[in-house]
Each structure stands twice: as structure tokens, then as C-alpha cells.
């Protein structure tokens, strides 16, 4: 593990009852690296992503973020989570808050920043994701793609050290996938450290520095995208790719 590693998972195991969802997973993500996690449904990719900010506690092993092992539930964990942005499949924007309030609430309430300053930053972020003109609307008034872009802005407002994306486009209508991937691609270009669980092979190809393939809770294979898609080594990866790339 290099000095530059921001996220390090060592021998991580997790069970849901008898189901071994994370089977001795080792993964290190460097600062500024974009890692895309792919694999069949139920392979543990989402659990892996959620374990990194302890939304999903693990049974054994260690997860280190920026040199510090994940704290147990409490204030220290809350502080750590504030440094890791998370984007969910189902957006999870706060339904009773406006778009602008959604983006501002973290810095103002968690970081205790002044709302005047946060307001400008929040508007700049909304501008960046192309939704500044909807700032006063409520989440339910926006399309899925717009909501997901707000969710990204909400995470960025905390000025996180890393971003976790848990299938960010899986709940979107096809025509809205692009607008969300565009935002993610530009983030990746700017050097944001990202762990992205996705089924978007196009995004994996052009934005990832490394592709991680998971199956049955195990991290089966990892390689740069060009190499992985051209010549997967494991039979499971070959099988998976043959199923999704033939259509």
C-alpha cells in the first residue's frame, strides 16, 4: 500500500446472516484515483461502497480513510462521513427541503459555516451541475437526472476528500443517464478521488483509472479499463462481459 493511499480496505469480511457478502476484500484507492467497481447483481459491490463510510458495518478486517481507521458509531464517525461524499442510487434528497437547502444544510449544520458564504458556494455548485435555476424548487418537482445532479452538488458542498457513488444512474430513465455521467466525468478529470459502483461500461472505459470486478463477495480482478475490457483474465469476468457487451 502506497503512501498516497486514501482509502484502504484490508481483509474485509461481512456476512448478511449466512450470506458472505464481502469475502476477504483488499482494496487500496490512491488520492485522485477513480476506481469503478463492476460485477453482477448481488456480488457485494454496493456493500463495499457503503462500507467505506460505515453506512454498512463490517464483521472483520480494517478500513482506513486518510490514514485513520474508521471510528465506531458516534461523533468521530460523523466527522469522517462529512469528508466522504456519497451519492445514492435513489438520490435521497431531503424531501422537505428545497434544492438550495439540500445543498446548504451540510456545511451550515454539520460544519457550522456561515450561511452567507455557503449560499454562494452552493449556488456555484448548482450552476456547475446545471440546476441553479431550480434552486427554490422541492426535490419532487425535479426529474431523476436533475435530482441526482443535486445530490452530487450536495455531496460536493462538504468539500469531501473522496466521493462514493452507489449505482448513481441505475434508477434513471435512459435519456437522463448522460447528464449525470457528464458531471461525474468532469469531477474525475479534476482529480477527485472516486469509487463508483456502476453498470455504465462506457463510463468505466473512459473515466476509470482502474476497474475492479467483483463476484460473490470476492474481488476477482482489477486492471486498467482498456486491459480489463480487452482481455479479462478470470472466467467470471469473461462470462460477465460476454453477457453485457453482446447486446
Amino acid at each position: 500500500m502506497s503512501d498516497d493511499a486514501l482509502i484502504v480496505l484490508e481483509n474485509v469480511n461481512k456476512w448478511f446472516g449466512p450470506l458472505h457478502v464481502l469475502d476477504d476484500v483488499n482494496l487500496s484507492v490512491a488520492r485522485g484515483e477513480v476506481v469503478v467497481v463492476i460485477g453482477p447483481s448481488g456480488s457485494g459491490k454496493s456493500t463495499l461502497c457503503r462500507a467505506i463510510n460505515r453506512l454498512e458495518p463490517i464483521n472483520s478486517g480494517t478500513i482506513t480513510f486518510d490514514g485513520v481507521p474508521l471510528p465506531a458509531e458516534g461523533r468521530a464517525l460523523a466527522r469522517l462521513r462529512s469528508e466522504v461524499g456519497m451519492v445514492f442510487q435513489s438520490f435521497n434528497l431531503f424531501a422537505h427541503k428545497t434544492i438550495l437547502q439540500n445543498v446548504m444544510i451540510g456545511p451550515v449544520k454539520v460544519r457550522k459555516e456561515k450561511s452567507v458564504e455557503v449560499h454562494d458556494r452552493a449556488m456555484a455548485l448548482l450552476e456547475r451541475v446545471g440546476i441553479a435555476n431550480q434552486a427554490d424548487k422541492y426535490p419532487a418537482q425535479l426529474s431523476g437526472g436533475q435530482q441526482q445532479r443535486v445530490a452530487i452538488a450536495r455531496a460536493l458542498a462538504m468539500q469531501p476528500k473522496a466521493m462514493l457513488f452507489d449505482e448513481p444512474t441505475s434508477a434513471l430513465d435512459p435519456e437522463m443517464v448522460g447528464e449525470v455521467l457528464d458531471v461525474m466525468t468532469s469531477l474525475a478529470r479534476e482529480g477527485m478521488t472516486m469509487v463508483v459502483v456502476t453498470h455504465e461500461m462506457g463510463f468505466a472505459r473512459h473515466a476509470a483509472k482502474r476497474v475492479v470486478f467483483m463476484a460473490d463477495g470476492q474481488l476477482v480482478e482489477e486492471a486498467p479499463p482498456a486491459e480489463f475490457f480487452a482481455s479479462p483474465k478470470s472466467d467470471r469476468a469473461k462470462d460477465f462481459l460476454s453477457k453485457i457487451l453482446t447486446h
Binding site: R75, R81, E83, F94, A95, I105
Partner: peptide
């Protein structure tokens, strides 16, 4: 929805903040 509390925790809210600012309202 459980996702509301999860999102709150993910931006660093404590249990109390999650409850009073997101869930109870």
C-alpha cells in the same frame, strides 16, 4: 424512507441532527 436518514448520516449529521432536522420534520 430509510434513505433520508442514510443521506443525513452520509453528510456527517449526528443521530440527533438526523432525527431533529430530517426525520422528525
Amino acid at each position: 424512507p430509510a434513505g433520508q436518514a442514510e443521506a443525513a448520516r452520509a453528510i456527517g449529521m449526528t443521530f440527533r441532527q438526523t432525527l431533529t432536522m430530517i426525520v422528525l420534520p
